[in-house]
Design a protein around this nucleic acid. Structure first.
Lengths: 294, 294
DNA sequence: GCTACCTATCGAATTACCGGATCAATATAA
DNA sequence: TTATATTGATCCGGTAATTCGATAGGTAGC
């Protein structure tokens, strides 16, 4: 049970900022006595002197200063809460749930989300990063999902291709075989790091069984390769710097060196999708159509 | 001007948590009609439906859920604001300003501040880290200060000695002179990093002029030494790990290798110092008397 | 001392809020 | 199916909180 109301703190704030009770009354469209009453009541309920009147001017006490500092935050937060409520009353959606496959480039993602936040400041985004995201899983998790395109599904709208490139650390034995071209057989006895989790079915992108590390984040896969322990197909955009530095080198695998992974955008239930969610989808599509290949 | 009061949001919160209007009324020690009124008023002012009644049970709408999520924070924040006010009314100080010389070990400092925060959760600490802090400067900056002890002042209470140790990177030329003992003359033509700023007087701890880098943070001094460019006297506690790893090695300077810098605790104005500030001082003294040498 | 300015206080009026009773809707049990 | 208990909405009278205008009491500047 609260002893004070934010309204009272607001009055105090206005008195301090306006530099007096009368000026505050003006700003608040209230009578001066009302302002005086509110401040007096606030202090009475707290049992603390917040404003000290010396001479004919009011000054914050040290305690008042400290407490008002906190109260200011609360006041503006309540204001934004109410603004948010108002925006939602106008039909804006409260939140948009977005599931994104973890190989989708983060700079794209956050670029889009930043622009989205500008246009829809009161809609919250719940972001869910998932490895090997399928449209069906995405539909469970979110309103909108950026998924891997597989054979079964073609429904989604194409966003972009993410280029996976086979790489190993420059000190990795695969870069010191003497061969100018490696065959897939050469990879057999080396540790490969792969993205996935236990729950996934056994059939994998590359056929033959070979020693594998399974990791469930892109970051872990990169670290595994950087540590010289593994080779692996990594999204090119995540290792640009290491490639430029020569720290990681592409494996000379001929045509198998790179793989383009198509990512598609899916609505969980298009007909029941609100305009805000659709706007986010449009932003995603626009952005990626501009530089379709990464 | 606020359209809603936190009191109303509190009622909504209670209704949701208690699982009904009647139960909320019970918890709030109010009548059921009062609860109903508050929620109705809240929704009316916002122009949004927050609770939807289906059947005879109330459920949050999506909007309600999102907004309440924010409101909960505000409610507890107002509570702590009021608790803080109450604590201050009981005589606790609103804030304690503390100035600390930058060679004072941070783990001591934060250990003490953590315990202080437990005992005085409503007193805020304003921490000011300063290089070469003198008691007079400390008195200007803060209520309480941890300063270097100089010849002029002996008033403060002794806290601890910080051991500075002359070190250089293991690859630094000073470690490859062939000598088993270095003299101060050997240092003359090497770059020394020193802690200070331009405003300080020219007379320094070590007499003779020699090529110097002046940096104004301990961290910068450490980095300068780690980069192999400089040698310098660094606080031992800040480079324990590098010493253990053998990355930085003490310079064999005989008795001049280490210097104990005494740090003392000073009150800006002891007579006007409140009990909370004194309690912090006691905590500092207790902690450091337990392991007086670092 | 006079004047301008500032906050506190008083009394009357208004408004917001509360509690109790009652109503309509609905879930539960017989 | 019917009786019953539970739940939230609403109405109504009463009360407490808040507002306003007027006025009092104090301070700073002249």
């Amino acid at each position: 049970m609260h002893r004070t109301s934010l309204e009272q703190w607001l009055v105090l704030q206005t008195v301090v900022d306006a530099g007096g009770f009368a000026q505050a009354a003006e700003l608040l469209h209230r009578s001066q006595s009302s302002v005086s009453y509110a401040v007096a009541r606030l202090q009475e309920r707290l049992g603390v002197e917040l404003l000290h009147i010396d001479g004919r001017r009011a000054h914050l006490t040290t305690i008042g200063e400290t407490l008002l500092q906190d109260a200011r935050l609360l006041i503006t937060e309540l204001e934004t809460l109410e603004l948010r409520a108002h925006a939602l009353a106008q039909g804006a959606e409260a939140k948009v749930r977005l599931a994104v496959d973890s190989i989708y480039p983060k700079d794209h993602l956050f670029g889009v989300l930043a622009r989205f936040a500008q246009r829809y400041p009161y809609t919250r985004v719940e972001l869910n990063e998932v490895i090997r995201l399928s449209p069906s899983r995405g539909a469970n998790l979110a309103d909108l999902s950026i998924c891997l395109q597989s054979a079964e599904n073609t429904a989604g709208q194409k966003l972009m291709d993410v280029e996976l490139i086979a790489v190993a650390h420059r000190d990795h034995p695969l870069h010191h075989t003497g061969k100018t071209v490696l065959s897939f057989a050469d990879l057999t006895h080396h540790l490969q790091v792969r993205l996935g989790d236990e729950s996934l079915p056994a059939h994998e992108l590359s056929g033959a069984p070979r020693p594998n590390w399974m990791v469930n984040t892109v970051e872990a896969a990169i670290e595994a390769v950087r540590s010289r322990l593994c080779f692996g197909w990594l999204p090119r955009h995540t290792i640009q710097q290491a490639l430029a530095d020569g720290l990681l080198l592409p494996l000379p695998l001929g045509t198998g060196q790179t793989r383009d992974i198509p990512l598609t955008l899916h609505f969980s239930d298009y007909d029941r999708t609100g305009s805000t969610t659709r706007a986010l989808a449009s932003l995603l599509l626009e952005t990626d159509s501009m530089h379709s290949q990464i």
